[in-house]
């Protein structure tokens, strides 16, 4: 079981590494969106500190959305997905492997990059730490829930926009607790409760999402 997941992860990572431009462009999208906000609302440090958690988190959601269609589309195009679905191993586990690989190339870099961007918003070092850890804890849930949407919109016309319509409302709890944790740290309340709930969302999301995703993939392949 674990071996299968491991094999899928290393395969997807290798494929992602051969097309680094995709990863880098999603990251730059994140950087650019975040940097646009101070230009839009003005450079007052007080205001920026207040806005930072929400802006960084919303930008992270959007950046994740950008990379989601690739989760299954390439494999679908060259027929690999059909072979995977025919394999005797449960499709859910294969999906889990793909979700983990997706997180490693999309969520993890965002979490590592976010503190640097947080500096632009004059966040304290405490808040930067919390920001980074919320993204670290919360982005796996984004990859998991996003996989459902990616599977549902596989091969559908207008897939990209449709995907955001389906997935963004489901991301709201993650956004609330992720941005809320940073906000709580900035205002001096503890972030403990938010982090626990965020962890619960991630565990639930990553654990349950592979099932509907696998079902949706089978429908798409029919």
């Amino acid at each position: 079981m674990l071996k299968l997941v491991h094999a899928i992860i290393s395969r997807d990572l290798r494929l992602a590494m051969r097309r680094r431009a995709d990863i880098v462009s999603a990251l730059f999208f994140f950087i650019i969106v975040v940097s646009l906000f101070p230009l839009g609302v003005g450079p007052e440090p007080e205001l920026l500190r207040k806005l930072a958690p929400g802006v960084l988190w919303v930008a992270a959601l959007l950046a994740t959305m950008l990379s989601l269609p690739r989760l299954f589309a390439d494999d679908h195009r060259d027929g690999t997905l059909e072979q995977l679905a025919l394999a005797p191993q449960p499709l859910g586990l294969i999906v889990l492997g793909k979700v983990v690989a997706h997180w490693l190339v999309s969520g993890l870099p965002l979490a590592l990059l976010a503190p640097v961007l947080g500096l632009q918003f004059d966040l304290s070092s405490d808040a930067l730490w919390v920001l980074s850890s919320t993204l670290l804890i919360g982005t796996p849930a984004l990859s998991g829930i996003g996989a459902i949407g990616a599977a549902l919109t596989l091969g559908v016309r207008g897939g990209g926009v449709l995907l955001s319509l389906l997935v963004l409302p489901l991301y709201i709890p993650v956004l609330i607790f992720g941005a809320g944790a940073v906000d709580a740290t900035v205002t001096g309340l503890g972030a403990q409760a938010h982090l626990s709930l965020l962890g619960a969302l991630t565990l639930g999301g990553v654990f349950f999402a592979p099932w509907p995703t696998a079902a949706a993939l089978r429908i798409a392949l029919d």
Binding site: L152, T153, L166
Partner: peptide, 24 residues
């Protein structure tokens, strides 16, 4: 509604919509 109307094959649209409704 958007998902159902984007898929041309009605059987697939039904099933995809069903999964979305249950997840929702």
């Amino acid at each position: 509604i958007a998902l159902q109307s984007a898929i041309d094959d009605p059987r697939r649209a039904d099933k995809a919509g069903a999964i979305l409704a249950l997840v929702g």
